[in-house]
Design a protein around this nucleic acid. Structure first.
Length: 575
RNA sequence: GGUCCCGUGGUGAAGUUGGAGUUCACGCCGGCCUGUCAAGCCGGAGGUCGCGGGUUCGAGUCCCGUCGGGACCGCCA
């Protein structure tokens, strides 16, 4: 049907007769005998010189047969890769007519309401931007597959209809026809199955897996999303990081990027330096320790504080007026801080601040040195519990300094040694698992499990890119006695564990190898690699924030007959 | 569950302290035009200002509600 694509002809093809097929991009009329038609496919655009009597309009599907001609120098279009040639003596065959599209099939549609783009997604995808994004996604997927296969990982598909488990995210539920009143759940992740594959001797498992979570949607979250899911037997944390790192490297290289070295820092260091467990390393403004500076201060807000930390928003003094500083203070208080101290550095190096008069000369000098304060800088200080001080300043650091996620450079890092438990459940007084209850504690901290559980580090880790959490993983518990200890701490009895996790835990009695794994979000990775801020831009048919699809109108009511068969009755809407 | 922003011909935008007949660009339709390339020129059609209620002599504009979209908080072991 076609001999070439619309993006490949060059002056060296001059003289050959070719056939192109595609969509009419634009038409430029020049009188009775002459018109230019730009023919478009996913590879590009080629100008065809046609007789003006040919009645084709934008988005008509046509086949054009003609002769490639080099354009004279004055007619070359430098903006097009094919701008050195055009098709002459064209025979145009209309394969399908088309109504005018609701929005232009070009970069001009970037400003069209997203709802409209989603309603006509098949036209939106016809655009260069979406073509590019989906092709990047495909290249990333295949590069990841190749990298995993090369490392001896075996792709195993796991079921979509799985039992409901009460932990974690809210699940999508699927009614059973043969067992009315019983339900399947759609998997939040293949977590349980992949660990059983380790018991089963698969040794290295991976899957580009669809996961489903019924939680509110965001720029980086859809109900359905794809993960590179992997699990390894007889592997250390470092083994897992190396394997996943190779997949990330392959993905980046597939789009012509170099991820550089993946830095590794502990969770404690991340909190201490950046105030967040997914630090964005593209900018400085690190948290500085100030507790010692104010060890014997007269300033009441700082005196006796467990932890005092500060950041220097360099050069931001003028940008942040009283109003913005008040908003920042409110935010700090909402996050649990007792307050926020700000100081602006004046031209002579002195501090402009409501609290400047409470600081001694020594303290002022030490503060200036510690934060490397220069005229025009804005200093922000929080005195509180360590966690609060870090988190508040980490949030302000991101608010003030963080560039859009897709803006290079790309700074990948592993965050390791997450705490095994995060805080205490108010109702039960029990510690809450940070990752999931099957996470292996750090070997050096196991002895603290019963005495000081909140100090126990885990063998859990996150992969972070430019402040976005790409994914997380852990070394799992494979010893039933250790698992029982953890359940004991969580207040889960043997009976309850059997009931809730029995099908998962019983297999571990039959020879479970030490194992660990990881999963990262492909949508997020592809979005960043494609330079998009929103994962919907790299998903062919995404849902809106309210979980609807403007193209298919899903979700929709179903027939009473269908509900009947499933033994389901729908309650009337709440008044 | 909450906070904030948005909704005006097919598309994107403008519309002042509430005041005459909503404005502009692109697109669309018709005409002219032999070298354009987002062609150009002339003419034309196209609107429930998301929807409902209220205030007012008068509402695109103000108020309340509602629907839809987006960003974020909660949530996402």
């Amino acid at each position: 049907m076609r001999t070439h694509s619309c993006g490949e002809l060059r002056p060296e093809h001059a003289g050959t007769t070719v056939s192109l097929a595609g969509w009419v991009a634009t038409r430029r009329e020049h009188g009775e005998k002459l018109a230019f038609v730009d023919l478009r496919d996913h590879t590009g655009v080629t100008q065809c010189v046609v007789d003006n009597s040919v009645d084709v309009r934008p988005e008509f599907v046509v086949r054009v047969t003609g002769t490639v001609a080099a354009r004279p120098a004055e007619n070359v279009n430098d903006k097009l890769p094919t701008g050195g040639i055009e098709l002459q003596d064209c025979v145009v065959e209309i394969l399908n007519a088309a109504e005018p599209p609701p929005f232009p099939i070009s970069e001009r549609a970037d400003t069209v309401a997203e709802n409209t783009r989603l309603q006509y997604r098949y036209l939106d995808i016809r655009r260069e931007r979406m073509q590019r994004n989906l092709r990047i996604r495909s290249a990333v997927n295949s590069a990841i597959r190749r990298a995993m296969e090369d490392q001896g990982f075996v792709e195993v598909e796991t079921p979509m209809l799985v039992p409901s488990t009460p932990e974690g995210a809210r699940e999508f539920i699927v009614p059973s026809r043969q067992q009315p009143g019983s339900f399947y759940a759609l998997p939040q992740s293949p977590q349980l199955f992949k660990q059983l594959l380790m018991v089963a001797g698969i040794d290295r498992y991976y899957q580009i897996a669809r996961c489903l979570r019924d939680e509110d949607l965001r720029a980086d979250r859809q109900y359905e999303f794809m993960q590179l899911d992997a699990e390894m037997s007889f592997a250390s944390q470092d083994d897992v990081h190396a394997a996943i790192g190779a997949a990330v490297l392959a993905a980046a290289q597939a789009v012509g990027q170099d991820p550089g070295d993946i830095v590794k820092i502990t969770w404690h260091e991340a909190m201490n330096r950046f105030g967040i467990d997914k630090p964005d390393l593209r900018f400085g403004m690190e948290l500085q320790e100030l507790t010692d500076v104010f060890a014997s201060t007269e300033f009441k807000a700082f005196a006796g504080a467990v932890c005092i930390k500060g950041i220097n928003a360099s050069g931001k003094a003028d940008e942040y007026g009283r109003n913005k500083l008040d908003q920042m203070t409110d935010k700090a208080k909402k996050m649990g801080a007792k307050g926020l101290v700000w100081l602006k550095v004046a031209a002579d190096g002195s501090f402009e601040s409501p609290v400047a008069k409470f600081l001694s000369a020594d303290e002022t000098a030490a503060l200036t040195a510690r934060l490397d304060a220069k005229p025009g800088d804005l200093l922000l200080i929080v005195a509180d519990q360590w966690t609060t001080a870090c988190e508040v300043l980490g949030t302000l650091r991101n608010d003030i300094g963080r560039p859009p996620v897709h803006q290079g450079p790309y700074r990948y890092l592993w965050v390791v040694d997450f705490p095994l438990f995060v805080g205490v459940d108010e109702a039960s007084g029990r510690p809450k698992p940070g990752h999931h209850p099957f996470t292996q504690p750090h070997p050096d901290d196991v002895h603290l499990l019963e005495t000081d559980p909140l100090q126990v580090r885990s063998q859990a880790y996150d992969l972070v890119l430019n402040g976005w959490e790409l994914g997380s993983g852990s070394i799992r518990i494979h010893q039933p006695d250790l698992q029982a200890r953890i359940f004991g701490l969580l207040g889960i009895s043997q009976e309850e564990a059997d009931r809730r996790f029995g099908f998962f835990l019983n297999p571990f009695k039959y020879g479970a190898p030490p194992h660990g794994g990881f999963a990262f979000g492909i949508d997020r990775l592809v979005a960043i690699l494609a330079g998009e801020e929103n994962i919907r831009e790299v998903i062919a048919f995404p849902k809106t924030q309210s979980g609807q699809d403007p193209m298919t109108n899903a979700p929709t009511p179903v027939d009473a007959k269908q509900l009947d068969e499933l033994g389901i009755r729908v309650l009337p809407p709440k008044a």
